[in-house]
Each structure stands twice: as C-alpha cells, then as structure tokens.
C-alpha cells in the first residue's frame, strides 16, 4: 500500500476501531514511512473528541472504591519484594496433596487467635471474632507482611450513600484498612494489602461513600488481635 491508501486507514487506527489486519498493515507501513507526526496529530484529535463529552456526576461510592484501591496497591508494590504468600501450601500441594489437605484441616481447626507453627511461615495468623448478633469477622494474615484475607457476615447492607469502613487502632493511630459494602446476604469477602501487627484493634463503622480518612460513625464492633 502507498501512503495515500494508508491515510485512508489512519482514522480507524487512531480511533481504536481498526481490525487486527488493518493495524498490521498500518504498522508495517509506519515502520518504513515518516508518517509518525501525522499519526500523533490524528491520535490527539481523536483523543480530544472525549474532551467534548458531556460531564456526568458519578455515584458517590465510586470515589471510595478507587481510593480503597490505592491503599491496597501501595502495599501491593511492597509485596513484590516481600515473601510470597502461602508458598508452603503451594509446594506441599505439588509434592503431597494428601499432606496439603491435612494441613488445611489443621488450619481450619486453629481459628480463634491461634498463631500457626508452620515451618516456613511461623507468624501466620488467623483471627476470628463472633459478636452477639451472629455477626462475625475472620482475618487471615502474616503479621508484619502486607496482605490479609478478610471475610465477615451478619451485617446489614448499606444504601448507596454509605460504605462500611474497616479501621485499625495501633497505639494512638487510627489507620484505614479499606471500605466495602456487604452483599444482600450481609456478607463480604476480599483481600486488603494492609500490614497488620500484633495488638492491633480492628473495628468497623459506616461512613459516607465519598470516603473519609478518619472515622466519624459509631463502631459496629471492636476486636483485638
């Protein structure tokens, strides 16, 4: 194809609607031809179409969800340099699945503030809390390492203007673990890249879905590691 024929394909290429074949043809040509500036100008023109779109107010909960992601991802970056989570179980599953099942059974029995005595992860920790109203919280983590699997249940689902916020009190500091809403069954499960430490007190409040750095609502429950 010559440059003129390629120019016919460039609009679809920069609008992101070119087929794989058309992209291949355009990129083959661009590798040998000096249309780079033209492509950049057309790509910018296409991108600017978005700037003319009408603004629409998103739901308030969206901001809290995005900011909760930053809390997780910040620690996630650290995790790449840290100890991989549960490597002992993966290795055991690969070598001896029966032993792995037995190990899982041991873990299942060892809830209620039990520090597991595994050879490779002695600091593994499972915390279980059960309240008087059938509400419960389970946290599985390695103390001092980023990452915790959290599940809970027995809570009322909040309307869209609010989210549950999970906090930790550590000394005189109050740290936000994350925000979420429970499902219609009153349950939630997920993972936070939060670093728990021994002695942390965990508690939960309902807050505005727009998010907050400091708790304002009344604690739904409190429990100490």
């Amino acid at each position: 194809m010559n440059c003129e024929e390629i120019r016919d394909l460039l609009p679809a290429y920069v609008l992101g609607t070119a087929t794989p074949h058309e992209i291949g043809v355009v990129e083959d040509h661009l590798a040998r031809c000096g249309l780079h500036e033209e492509v950049a100008a057309l790509t910018a023109s296409a991108a600017l179409i978005a700037s003319g779109s009408k603004s629409v107010e998103p739901p308030a909960a969206l901001k809290a969800r995005i900011m909760a992601h930053t809390a997780g991802a910040t620690a996630g970056v650290q995790r790449e340099r840290g100890t991989p989570r549960r490597p002992w179980l993966r290795r055991l599953l690969a070598v001896n699945p029966i032993a792995a099942v037995l190990a899982l059974a041991l873990v299942a029995m060892a809830v209620w503030n039990v520090t597991l005595q595994g050879a490779e992860s002695p600091e593994k920790f499972v915390h279980f809390y059960r309240g008087q109203d059938s509400d419960w919280l389970r946290v599985e983590t390695v103390l001092g390492d980023p990452g915790a699997e959290v599940s809970l249940g027995g809570f009322d689902r909040l309307d869209d203007s609010q989210l549950y916020h999970l906090w930790t009190t550590r000394g005189d500091q109050v740290l936000l673990i994350g925000a979420f809403n429970v499902n219609p069954e009153g349950k939630w499960a997920g993972e936070f890249d939060f670093v728990f430490e021994e002695g942390d007190r965990i508690w939960m409040t309902s807050e505005s879905a727009s998010g907050t750095d400091q708790p304002t609502g009344e604690a739904v429950f409190k429990t100490r590691f």
Binding site: Y13, V14, G16, T17, A18, T19, P20, I23, V26, E27, L30, H36, E37, V39, A40, A41, T43, A44, A46, A47
Partner: peptide
C-alpha cells in the same frame, strides 16, 4: 479490537 493507540510512540506524542 486490539489496542493501537496508547502504547505506540505516536500514542505518547499524541498525549
């Protein structure tokens, strides 16, 4: 459709 716009050099210049 494959992405052709963000990762290329032209895409960076376009931004």
């Amino acid at each position: 459709l494959p992405d052709s716009s963000v990762s290329s050099n032209a895409g960076q210049d376009a931004l």
